[in-house]
């Protein structure tokens, strides 16, 4: 694929050994980039397969896995988020299927998606303390009592 047109979004193409090609972008440019990739005739990535969150100990990485129905191509957008204030703009305006993905990541990693109004815990019970898929999570089965929720 020809990624040169993406230069206006300040992207960096990352290709490591034994890995797939990733398009690294700043979280502020994420929505613009996804909008462009979805609507431009050249790329036409019309389906968001999934969002993958990874705890890299120092920070979090989110990978947006985009698929194109017409050209059968993939694109993986990668965003690095600061661990101390994990916040990223929501993309449910662009891909509606992202809603459950974002809730799942909020539930298991504690990453907050701004603009996503109904962000809720999807799998863990209400009032669960901690985010299970973080690497520093210690299982205590602790929960907030009914009046602290």
């Amino acid at each position: 694929m020809n990624f040169e047109v993406l230069d206006k979004f300040n992207v960096e193409i990352i290709k490591k050994e034994n890995s797939f090609e990733k398009i690294r972008v700043e979280s502020s440019n994420l929505c613009d980039l996804l909008n462009f990739l979805k609507n431009s005739a050249e790329f036409n990535f019309d389906r968001l397969n999934t969002i993958i969150a990874i705890d890299l100990v120092d920070n979090f990485e989110l990978i947006y896995d985009l698929h194109s129905i017409n050209t059968s191509q993939y694109a993986r957008i990668s965003v690095i988020i600061d661990r101390n204030s994990p916040k990223i703009p929501s993309i449910i305006e662009i891909f509606k299927s992202a809603y459950y993905d974002e809730c799942e990541i909020f539930d298991l990693f504690g990453i907050e998606f701004t603009n996503n109004q109904n962000l809720k815990r999807l799998f863990m019970p209400k009032g669960w303390v901690g985010y299970p898929l973080r690497k520093d999570y210690k299982q205590t089965d602790e929960r907030l009592s009914w009046n602290e929720k």
């Binding site: 890995s19 797939f20 896995d65 993986r76």
Partner: peptide, 9 residues
Amino acid sequence: VPEGEFISN
């Protein structure tokens, strides 16, 4: 497994 990542569909 050597360092790396992969998505299988």
